[in-house]
């Protein structure tokens, strides 16, 4: 790299930027320790008077945090599991199997990525509400609450990822055909070839895809908000915390909300720090987040 005459200028810029990025997180953590009269009052103070954990205890109780946590875990696990399974199955078919209509299906997968998510909130919600023979609905989808009564509703619109299919397909194309052919001659069926050879070979890309999907699913807000409004029992962490913030006295509950937020972002943060390389590669592959 070229020698800069003023490397300190670069350091100054990068460090300033990093501080600006991190300060809101520190402010969140500091506020989570503050007493009810300490947050949002003048003059502003960065540090709390004492570091006690009462807000965390309050968050766990007032928010019914274990239930929110369970709902978030179930929805995230369903989405991540399903995306990994369907992506690697479809990706394998599109990369390595020969069948009529393959180009058409592949082009279909690509073209679905043109449709932005906001276009689907309304019809997806209405489809789940009017799902036939679910949640008290009749055959024509009338009379009940449909699939919104089930926790599965949180995951339904995200069970398949076109980007995931595209990603695994691109990765699987580089597996040599001879390896697969050898396994077939040895008597392995296509399912065995997929599970024993293709899936292990594509583990890096599956880890990346799983991580991206996990983070997105864990942080998903709008859809979870819609489903939770219809059925509060399946409320997820982000929705529950926002609910507390909106409907209880905001200034007094602020430290509790911040404590809840710290707890809710911890799992993703830990996972990100542990598997950072995989995640960053995923963001590179998906273009921009």
């Amino acid at each position: 790299m070229i020698r800069r005459r003023f490397p300190w200028l670069s350091y100054l810029l990068v460090v300033t930027g990093a501080v600006l990025t991190v300060v809101p997180f520190l402010d969140m953590v500091m506020t989570s320790f503050k007493g009810p009269d300490e947050a949002g009052t003048l003059p502003y103070r960065f540090l709390p008077k004492a570091f006690d954990l009462s807000n965390y205890r309050a968050a766990i109780q007032q928010l019914d945090l274990p239930v929110l946590f369970r709902n978030s875990v179930v929805a995230t696990a369903l989405i991540t599991g399903s995306v990994l399974l369907t992506s690697s199955l479809a990706g394998y078919a599109l990369a390595k199997l020969r069948f009529p209509g393959r180009d058409f299906v592949f082009r279909l997968v690509l073209s679905t990525m043109m449709f932005p998510p906001f276009l689907f909130f309304i019809p997806h919600f209405l489809i789940l509400v009017h799902w036939p023979l679910a949640g008290g609905n009749d055959l024509l989808g009338r009379g009940g609450a449909g699939l919104t009564v089930s926790i599965v509703a949180l995951a339904m619109p995200f069970l398949v990822s076109s980007f995931g299919i595209f990603l695994t397909r691109q990765f699987m194309i580089s597996i040599p055909d001879e390896v697969l052919e050898a396994a077939r001659i040895d008597g392995a069926g296509e399912f065995a070839v997929w599970w024993r050879i293709v899936v292990p070979q594509t583990r890096p890309v599956l880890v990346t895809l799983g991580l991206l999907t996990f983070v997105d699913a864990w942080n998903e807000y709008i859809w979870a908000l819609l489903i939770s409004t219809a059925n509060p029992e399946v409320m997820t962490l982000p929705v529950g915390i926002q609910f507390l913030q909106d409907y209880v006295d905001p200034t007094r509950t602020l430290p509790i909300v911040m404590a809840g937020l710290v707890l809710s972002i911890l799992p993703v943060l830990v996972l990100f720090l542990l598997l950072q390389k995989h995640y960053i590669r995923g963001v590179m592959l998906s273009g921009l987040k």
Partner: peptide, 11 residues
Amino acid sequence: IVTTVVAVGNV
């Protein structure tokens, strides 16, 4: 990037 919008927005 890995933080939920609820945390970012409220902070």
